[in-house]
Design a protein around this nucleic acid. Structure first.
Lengths: 202, 202
DNA sequence: TCCTGATTTGACCAACTGGTCAAAGTCACG
DNA sequence: CGTGACTTTGACCAGTTGGTCAAATCAGGA
């Protein structure tokens, strides 16, 4: 484990390579299913070398989760209380859908963690996540009270956006099995737009 | 491994206990995360005793998945081409939501399997599942063509029902972290009804 | 070029895990 | 109540896995 002086060029490169490989393996196999050897070979390093950069398998996992949570909440943070309500919401939906398309591994890593009961990020869920959602729900409720979007249960509205969009990353295999050759992401944005427009237009 | 004559009283009891325990453990930890010892102690039996009834850990998992897929598709099978379109669809949504409430372990077992790329049930997805969905999509398309429900992409419509309803089982921890004390299932049915009524009313 | 700290690795270990097996115990029925 | 089939288990094994360590190698500034 290198000293705590500024990271060297090699440290930066290897740490990044390890996290990249770890993301591949953890998102595909889950925490217990992943082995340090797998991650090592995926990263092109030896196992002891990995453990020189991260003190344990769990440390790699934690590093990924930590980085993830922020990224994951960004699209919601961008929801602007000053904007046009319906457009803001539709924008949020599309941003979230894009994340499923562009970062499916991150989505699956997160899904794996939640499925197992979120042992490592439960605190973050009840604190940062809940706080952010509560804040944005207040905005939504305001819009509904003003009649600018149709009234619906605001928490379930947000859950619905999460589940619908993440479904295309997390259940990718199933979606593709049913759809055959067709690309889900070609038609999904349009469906989402229709759905939320009809649901929320006052 | 008992002979293939009709199962004895003890066999029935123990096999059921094992599958029940295995469902608990697999759904909470995933296949790789679960250990035979865990399942054994949960079932109140010794490990060699488990392996007397099932030849391997994988056999227990397979037995669960096999039983699951049928149950899982039942709500969709019940969708009746002769019924009143909107009511049929709303009924399907509510049945699926009830399954998430009443069988969260099964939902998580399924989610785990799909997340890992469905290694064990991929064939079933592209065959039975796809066939059933294709059939029901034809029914939906018919209703849309007749103007009896609003036109939307029928496959995405079905995906949306799956993801929305299963979300409450698979992401239970997250939902409860955000909602606090409140019971998600108290308000979810009403939200779903509103959503699909607005989406599908012509 | 030399030196010091950073990096890499082969060999190894202890714990865990899925699975085996022979022997012991139990059940049900003639 | 005896007997053959069914059930249970303690002891064990081999493969895997996370992690350690001392020794070897490398990078770059003086």
């Amino acid at each position: 484990m290198p000293a705590d002086r500024p990271p060297t060029r090699i440290q930066k490169k290897n740490r990044a390579a390890i996290l990249e490989a770890a993301l591949n393996v953890f998102s595909a196999q889950g925490f217990r299913g992943a082995t340090v050897d797998q991650i090592a070979s995926e990263a092109g390093l030896s196992k002891p070398n990995l453990l020189y950069y991260f003190p344990s398998k769990e440390a790699m996992h934690n590093a990924l989760l930590e980085r993830l949570l922020d990224t994951w909440l960004d699209p919601l943070r961008e929801l602007d209380a000053q904007g046009e309500p319906l457009e803001e919401l539709l924008g949020y939906v599309q941003r979230k859908l894009q994340m499923s398309r562009d970062y499916p591994r991150e989505s699956r890593l997160f899904a794996n963690e939640i499925l197992q009961g979120a042992p490592r990020i439960h605190a973050a869920l009840t604190q940062e996540l809940k706080a952010l959602v509560d804040e944005k729900v207040a905005v939504l409720q305001g819009w509904m009270d003003q009649g600018r979007i149709a009234p619906v249960h605001p928490y379930h509205l947000i859950f619905s956006i999460w589940s619908l969009t993440q479904h295309y990353a997390d259940f990718d295999v199933q979606v593709r099995a049913v759809l055959g050759e067709k690309d889900p992401f070609a038609t999904a944005p349009d469906f989402m737009e229709t759905l939320y427009r009809r649901l929320l237009t006052p």
